[in-house]
Nucleic acid binder design. Structure first.
Lengths: 173, 173, 173, 173
DNA sequence: TATGAATGAGAGTTCATTCAT
DNA sequence: GATGAATGAACTCTCATTCAT
């Protein structure tokens, strides 16, 4: 995954993968049909797990604000724990991500549901929920990109409240 | 550029480029040292022009809110006029983009300056200007991605005010 | 053998062989030194047995015509009983067949001896015995190829006499 | 073609082909889509030409015996002129040969037509024409195989009359 | 003795780049 | 200056063979 994030899937050779895995060149192909297949499994399994955890976290809270905060927290915790995984799941747009079926559950679909619910409950102002989700999701994730590029230094977990509140302002009633 | 956006730089062959340009296979190499060099020039020249126009647009206004609005308007006008160019300059993370020197003037650096100035003038609340820029830039751009994926239907130029105001809420005093 | 005939020896993978034999991938190598070795044993043992039976059959008759008939009958009986074996032993030109020592006893060498004897006994007209053997052997076997390709429908065992007589005409006094 | 005949199509590497052609490894792929495609074109073009010449030769004669003789002569002339081509077109059963459409004009289909015509004209005895063709074609070709293996020494062109007459006996009235 | 995961040499193929025309 | 045939390094992937279990 490290290689895929750093050099892209196309840009990573199967030989490099084998070396990184300290395995023979052909070994990968006993486990995955192709390089693309490996990339897809890496994406699919990790995203599924992340989404499940994300749902669990959100479920614990009742207000939309709290749920949003949980989401930001989850994303930034993942980032500080495993930057590569975050990049692979949330920041890169690779071939693997394009294989997703349209009904796939993703962080975006969860955020969208959250927004719709918040609007129904009158916590959020009426607006195109897709627009709201786009604004919030973009804001949250771009912070991680800035951190990667070094513009932001602080541990993102310290910034959860600040980011949550900023996003909240965009969508609250 | 269309090919680069659709299939990635690595994923585009020089033969495809030649075909699309209705030129011979070797012709490209008389104008650019390599495929990567072409990608870089395509990026560099267009970004420079866009940034210049963006600066001109912003300059016309005095308040930070107006300037921010001008920026959103410029980005969304570009998107609706030339999606491919927008993708190539603002949405894709390709090798070409990584060649940029650190002191390069980009939409982000312009936004950052705008935020700093707004904070000095007391229009924006005190906060890490990088964080503010990240939140705003992320919000603005993610809307275009949603539009590309079809979640948003409207012409983005109609949404300039709504997006500007939403972003403004995140950073205003 | 089925796989070897259908896809060639080179074209058959050891994994396919293992599957077909309902054995593990490595098991074959405990019995044969290599895939080629398996192919050779399969060829050698079956050809030896077939040649022995062929000799026995021929021995039962005294006239050359009868012996020739016995040979045709034997070949066509084998074909109708076991097409794959016939293909493997008589029709395919594979690596295994090329391993044969020059003094190897084959259907051809038997036919050649038969022709020589027939000429000595004055039943066959004087001619290069190799030419005679070639003509007869070619005629007999090509019928099976036509049958495989579907140009001939009848059971070859019904055609033994017609084929024998046709061949006989080529070589009789 | 030499390599294909000697080692089979599967058994010949593209590297060997390039070396034999004194060309780079990639050059072949500018002219043919794949190794199999090269094999097919080599087969198709040469067989088409040979069949055309064969038809021309046969056309010159009026009696079936003469036509048959022309066919034998043509095959053996090809053999003595270009053994490799003969092997590739007439003796090997390779993947390329299997690509042939069923309505393809081949030496066999020509021989079959010749037999049918001869039977209609009363020159040949009544029998399954496919059987007749198989017997004759097998006899003619097996002689070349014997020559390749060294059992027959003479120039096949000297043997045209003998082979023709032998075959004739099988099918004449 | 049988297994099947691991191996790595080598296969077919692609494609950025060169250069004679 | 433009071309496109030729190139060969490097790619993904296959598969006969090995060997620890």
């Amino acid at each position: 995954m490290k290689l895929f994030v750093e050099k892209g899937i196309e840009g990573t050779t199967t030989r490099e993968i084998a070396e990184a895995a300290k395995a023979g060149e052909g070994t990968m192909f006993r486990h995955y049909k192709s390089k693309e297949d490996l990339a897809w499994h890496l994406f699919d399994e990790n995203l599924t797990r992340f989404v499940k955890e994300l749902e669990d976290d959100i479920q614990r809270y009742s207000t939309t604000h709290q749920k949003l905060r949980a989401m930001v927290e989850k994303c930034y915790a993942l980032f500080e724990t495993d930057r590569i995984l975050t990049s692979y799941l949330l920041l890169s747009e690779h071939t693997a991500a394009r294989r997703m079926p349209t009904d796939y559950k993703t962080p975006i679909s969860i955020l969208l549901a959250l927004v719709k619910q918040g609007q129904t409950q009158g916590e959020l102002r009426p607006m195109d929920p897709h627009l709201a989700a786009a604004l919030v999701f973009g804001a949250i994730l771009r912070v991680t990109i800035f951190k990667i590029y070094g513009s932001i230094d602080r541990d993102l977990r310290e910034m959860v409240d600040e980011v949550t509140d900023s996003c909240w302002k965009m969508i609250q009633v």
